[in-house]
Simulated assay, not measured.
Amino acid sequence: MNSKTQKVLLISGIVFPEIGGPATYVHNLQKELRRKGFTVDLISYNAFTRKLPIGIRHLALWLQLLVKGLFYDQMWAFDVFSAGVPAYFAAKILKKNFLVRIGGDSLWEAYIARTEEMILLSDFYKEKRQYTLKEKLMSWSIRQVVSGADAVVFSTQWMYDIWKQPYQICKDSVYIIENAYVPYDLRNENNNQVVEGQKIFVCPTRETFFKNKKMLIEVFEQLSKPNDDIALDTKPLSHKEHIRRIKASYAVVIPSLSEVSPNLLLDAMSVGIPYIMTKDSGYAYRFPGCGILVDPRSREDLKHAMTKILDPQIYISLKERAKHVRINRTYADVTLDFEHNFLK
């Protein structure tokens, strides 16, 4: 079969213009594949099915996929649980090639949100956990999807190393395709957001347990008493405004228990701003000398890192290294990886 005649159905839990990495990723991948001449369509939950209870909404999407999937050669899911589970079982029945991209770990997130245990993702599967019925179903479903998929795509080797044994993933089906990152060119813009005499730390994070926002705020409140020139900015902004904010900031902070491939780090590196970040990440050692890694379970470690980065000599050294980092990976590059690996 000529590669350009292959029809691909993309399945995602959320879609553009909704805010979220998977929505942006799938939107741009679809656009690039169409530009190259491929027939590509996208399916997701609608306003009604999204409100249904877990399991029932999976069933609703599965029924849709059984019909729509008839007209496509390949089915690609961009979330292992909400999109991957119904897509996998539909693809099996229809005998279609099935790919799943792993962007995070929904089971780990659900477990620590329920128990409020400070467990790193890299430690999560090292011992047996007491799952609820829902979590047992999630674990079983994820194992079925990744062990039975024709291709499993990870954004980092780190995440694959965590999942390969507990989910029995066949090495031959694994592909590492790094995320896209196209920095905004702000070099010719006036940086009028800088507040003279104030050191702004940026951490626009969700109210989710694994993001560890509560600890960050508590540590920051302690530090702000003797340091009245520091401020913490956690407001959500559009991406371009967010990049402008980072360029005007002192540093970014990523205090999450774990992060697979944090875009906030790439945002900071694109404009030469140092970081404080969890050591439990696929990007932990990607930009050495540009920031400080912390144990996110330790309040004292986070406080020490923030105190350390306020030291002028240390900060100048970190910023000097950060401003020489160059990153640029387009969605055309990502699409080319998908095309070469799966649409030959």
Rank of each mutant, 00 (worst) to 15 (best):
M1D: 02
S3C: 08
T5Y: 04
Q6A: 11
K7H: 09
V8R: 00
V8F: 06
L9F: 10
L10S: 00
I14C: 10
I14M: 14
P17W: 13
I19D: 07
I19C: 00
A23N: 09
Y25K: 01
V26E: 05
H27P: 00
E32L: 03
L33R: 01
L42D: 05
S44F: 04
F48D: 06
T49G: 03
R50K: 15
I56R: 01
R57E: 02
W62P: 02
L65D: 07
V67I: 09
F71W: 13
S82H: 12
S82F: 11
S82Q: 10
A83I: 03
G84L: 00
I93L: 15
I93S: 05
L99W: 10
V100C: 14
I102T: 00
D105G: 12
S106D: 14
W108T: 08
I112G: 01
A113H: 12
I119D: 02
S122M: 01
S122Q: 09
S122Y: 01
D123C: 08
L133C: 03
E135H: 07
E135M: 14
L137N: 05
S141M: 03
I142A: 04
A149F: 11
D150V: 08
D150N: 15
V153A: 08
Q157V: 11
Y160P: 03
D161W: 07
K164F: 09
K164Q: 14
Q168P: 02
K171F: 08
D172H: 11
V174L: 08
Y175E: 07
L186S: 03
N191A: 09
V194R: 14
K199I: 04
K199F: 11
F201E: 00
V202K: 12
P204E: 12
R206I: 08
V219K: 02
F220G: 02
E221D: 12
E221H: 12
L223Q: 07
L223K: 08
A231S: 10
S238C: 04
K240M: 09
I243C: 06
Y250H: 14
V252M: 07
V253D: 01
V253G: 04
I254C: 02
P255H: 12
S258A: 11
E259Q: 03
P262Q: 03
N263D: 06
L264D: 06
L265A: 10
A268D: 03
Y275W: 11
I276P: 03
K279R: 15
D280E: 04
S281P: 07
G282Q: 10
G282M: 11
A284T: 13
Y285F: 13
Y285W: 11
F287T: 04
F287I: 11
L293V: 09
V294K: 05
R297W: 10
E300S: 13
D301P: 07
L302W: 12
T307H: 09
I309A: 06
P312V: 13
P312F: 10
P312W: 12
Q313P: 02
I316R: 14
L318R: 09
K323S: 15
T330S: 15
T330A: 09
D333W: 06
T335P: 03
D337E: 15
F342Y: 13
L343I: 10
K344N: 12
